[in-house]
Write a protein that binds this DNA or RNA. Structure first.
Length: 431
RNA sequence: UCCGGAAUAGCUCAGCGGUAGAGCGGGUGGCUGUUAACCACUAGGUCGGGGGUUCGAAUCCCUCUUCCGGAGCCA
């Protein structure tokens, strides 16, 4: 007899097969027992009918509890009521372990309870669907980059210094050297990689000790940073747009049933796969003021502002050319107006907010040095970074995608905490 | 960090000054097509901790703890 996965069941119609997995739910009516069975690849209804089975097998079926593990054999056939669905006529049950009372029930639960039981919650259909979409988003990003000549170049996670601010670092003791920090972005290291490989990316966890408590923040999240030599501001945005549109298409074509489980509005995703809009920061502020906001031209955009800007757009919007004061030291100034930098944020539609931050980098040694001095940075600690501008400096650009924010948008879910197996937030590190 | 809200059965909640409740989950029994199946019975609680007001507190007040929502910052 053949061992198969639930996802392949339709290819075995009329045949006896063996499946290995868990009990998601049980419904029984006297001589009939319906076991909702899952094996990681999918879910199927298995039916035990007393007159067709020997007594011991039927008793085994009766003893099963929610989440018990078992090997089940049966004949694959179409569901008598829904011909699009397959079910399994049970011929044998080998119980692996009878589960104790399973804490996650069929009724609703609160977020605190579910997060405390995250190790079990991950088995639920919605969490299963989100993890599969996360996997697909991750693969789609790597596919696009690979096809566009980007090489994987992993940045260190333990670092001697900060990349951006210094208030948001997790600090730890590093042998006799003193303090080390968990990386909050691999960007500066990636810039070294392009001088060897031309185009590079990293993909890994980054850490921010920000005390932010919103549905868009984690203290540990996965970021894909990409960096490319000889790419300037406009092309940088074009690469981001092509990459995101590739991700949208991949999710739509390969995660259809997952999107159904999550009740995702697929029309909204389809509509986002069209040329993205571009708006300068100045234009964005004008737009907000026309809508009644009293925001001024030197301000960063808040969450509400982002929603307001994208609410009438079906596609993501780039906000580009930001006031230099509110962006990082390494961003190149706009040659047409030195008060602005060649940076861009990509805001997703439907109120999902910022998913990418990117910029063209300053490639002039003296300009970069003077800005780092103005920010009172430790020049000696960043000598290696300044060296890049001394030995064959080239114009270059890059961007960083927050994986979980992208998955939140693709999945259409409310809170980022469900997009990573074990979310780390300021008040939660268990399990 | 700031501003709001919440804490009662394993879970989700109702009760808001006078004997602690429901649904789900658990247990037992019933049911040949169920779809969070259904029906009957049943077990299950120091009402988050501490202090106060009152004849009497789950209920009112103070305080601590934990969690949730939002803001700022960011991906």
């Amino acid at each position: 007899m053949q061992d198969i996965f639930v996802k392949d069941i339709s290819a075995y119609q009329g045949q006896e097969v063996r499946l290995k997995g868990w009990v998601r739910n049980i419904r029984s009516s006297g001589k009939l027992i319906f076991i909702i069975f899952r094996d990681g690849t999918g879910t199927i209804q298995a039916v035990a009918f007393k007159p067709d089975l020997d007594e011991a097998t039927f008793e085994d079926a009766k003893r099963l509890t929610l989440e018990s593990s078992l090997i089940i054999t049966g004949i694959s056939k179409q569901h008598p009521k829904n011909p699009n669905e397959y079910e399994l006529n049970i011929t044998g049950i080998q119980t692996i372990q009878i589960s104790e009372d399973y804490p996650i029930t069929k009724k609703e639960h609160g977020p605190d309870f579910l997060l405390s039981n995250r190790h079990l919650w991950l088995r639920s259909p919605k969490q299963w669907a989100i993890m599969r979409i996360r996997h697909k988003v991750y693969l789609a990003i790597c596919e696009y980059l690979h096809e566009n000549n980007f090489f994987r170049f992993d940045s260190p996670i333990l670092t001697p210094n900060a990349c951006e601010g210094t208030t948001t670092l997790f600090e730890l003791e590093y042998f006799d050297v003193g303090k080390a920090y968990l990386s909050q972005s691999g960007q500066l290291y990636l810039e070294t990689g392009i001088m060897s490989l031309g185009r590079v990316y990293d993909f890994g966890p980054v850490f921010r000790a920000e005390r932010s408590k919103t549905r868009k923040h984690l203290t540990e999240f996965w970021m894909m940073d990409a960096e490319a030599a000889f790419v300037e501001h406009d092309e940088n945005m074009q690469i981001q747009e092509d990459l995101i549109r590739h991700v949208i298409r991949s999710v739509l074509s390969e995660c259809d049933s997952e999107l159904d489980i999550l009740e995702r509005d697929k029309g909204a995703l389809k509509a986002a796969d069209a040329p993205f809009k571009r708006m300068t920061h100045f234009e964005a502020i004008e737009y907000l003021r026309a809508k009644g906001s009293d925001i001024d031209h030197s301000s960063d955009l808040g969450a509400q502002d982002e929603t307001l800007i994208t609410e009438e757009s079906q596609v993501p919007i780039f906000i580009e050319k930001w006031p230099k004061e509110i962006k990082a030291f390494y961003m190149k100034r706009d040659p047409n107006n030195e008060d602005y930098v060649l940076g861009s944020d990509l805001i997703a539609p439907e109120g999902f907010g910022e998913i990418i931050g990117g910029s063209q980098r300053e490639d002039d040694h003296d300009l970069l040095l003077s800005r780092m001095k103005a920010e009172k940075m430790d020049i000696e600690a960043y000598q290696w970074y300044l060296d890049l501008r001394k030995y064959g400096s080239v114009p270059h650009s890059g961007f960083g995608i927050g994986l979980e924010r992208l998955v939140t948008w693709m999945s259409g879910i409310h809170h980022i905490r469900e997009t990573i197996p074990y979310p780390r937030m300021i008040y939660r590190i268990y399990p």
